[in-house]
Amino acid sequence: MKSYGYARVSSRDQNLNRQLDALQAFPLSPESIYVDKCTGATFDRPRYQALVRKMRAGDVLVVKSIDRLGRNYAEILDQWHSLTRDLGVDVVVLDMPLLDTRGTSTEGRDLTGQFISDVVLQLLSYIAQVERENIHQRQAEGIAAAKARGAKFGRPRKQPPADWEGIRDRIACGELTQVEAARQLGVCRNTLRRWLEEDQTAEPSCASR
């Protein structure tokens, strides 16, 4: 029997220390702890999948909290049952002592204890998904509020150069093609077309050219 830890954060700049400290205090060696830095929406994560392939019946998987395992209600339940029933792996959730399958089995465990664990698992899995949805809602509301205040998102638009008017007039008078102009300016044709569309009201003076 071997014990493994699993830790996860959603982005590369989030801190793993609290999870790693808790797992090592279990105790687990650093070499037996697998870490992913990606979303918990699905279980298609490289290190988690590598860990599942490595584990055998009787091994123990330790996570600090159920939301580190995942944040999708249905997938957490499916994955839990796949680990405990199909693989025969025990799961320990450090933040919730009731979610500890060690020393029990589906056939032999106390019926009341099994019922309580199943209810707790479903409740925590549901909470994990609701929190994930709330995070997305708060992000969307924050972006909408910022846009309403005039905040700009994404890469700033490239602005025409100082000599743009002369180049624009040469294009309008047929002295310069859009391809040639884009090459001279070092921009893509879409950017050039946008500048031309924004300048549609300008009247080129071809007679004096």
Results as ranks from 00 to 15, higher is better:
100 D>G: 13
52 V>G: 15
90 D>K: 01
82 S>M: 04
45 R>L: 10
92 V>T: 05
117 S>T: 12
59 D>T: 05
63 V>L: 11
97 P>R: 02
51 L>N: 07
63 V>D: 06
45 R>N: 11
74 A>T: 02
48 Y>T: 11
94 L>Y: 03
83 L>Q: 07
74 A>P: 01
78 D>V: 08
100 D>M: 03
102 R>W: 00
79 Q>T: 13
115 F>N: 13
43 F>C: 14
113 G>E: 10
82 S>Y: 13
70 G>R: 05
64 K>I: 11
83 L>R: 04
94 L>R: 13
85 R>W: 06
73 Y>M: 00
93 V>L: 07
96 M>H: 06
49 Q>A: 13
117 S>R: 11
65 S>K: 15
60 V>Q: 10
113 G>S: 12
45 R>A: 09
108 G>E: 01
88 G>Y: 11
66 I>Q: 04
92 V>P: 06
109 R>Y: 05
55 M>F: 00
60 V>N: 05
80 W>G: 12
101 T>S: 13
112 T>M: 12
115 F>Q: 12
115 F>P: 01
95 D>H: 08
72 N>C: 13
57 A>S: 07
101 T>W: 00
58 G>S: 07
116 I>C: 07
88 G>I: 08
57 A>W: 02
66 I>H: 01
50 A>E: 10
118 D>P: 05
55 M>N: 04
79 Q>L: 13
101 T>K: 08
108 G>Y: 03
88 G>A: 03
105 S>W: 02
65 S>G: 08
92 V>I: 02
50 A>T: 07
47 R>H: 15
60 V>S: 09
56 R>G: 03
81 H>E: 05
71 R>F: 06
96 M>T: 08
45 R>F: 02
76 I>P: 14
110 D>G: 15
67 D>V: 01
101 T>D: 00
66 I>D: 07
93 V>W: 03
83 L>S: 08
84 T>S: 06
90 D>N: 15
113 G>V: 11
106 T>V: 10
89 V>Q: 08
91 V>C: 07
57 A>V: 03
95 D>A: 12
92 V>L: 02
112 T>N: 08
95 D>Y: 00
52 V>P: 03
85 R>C: 00
115 F>I: 14
42 T>A: 08
64 K>Y: 06
78 D>T: 12
55 M>Q: 02
73 Y>Q: 00
56 R>H: 12
84 T>I: 05
108 G>Q: 02
95 D>Q: 09
113 G>I: 05
91 V>Q: 08
70 G>T: 04
52 V>T: 11
96 M>A: 10
110 D>Q: 02
114 Q>A: 15
42 T>F: 04
76 I>D: 13
81 H>I: 14
68 R>N: 10
42 T>K: 14
99 L>E: 09
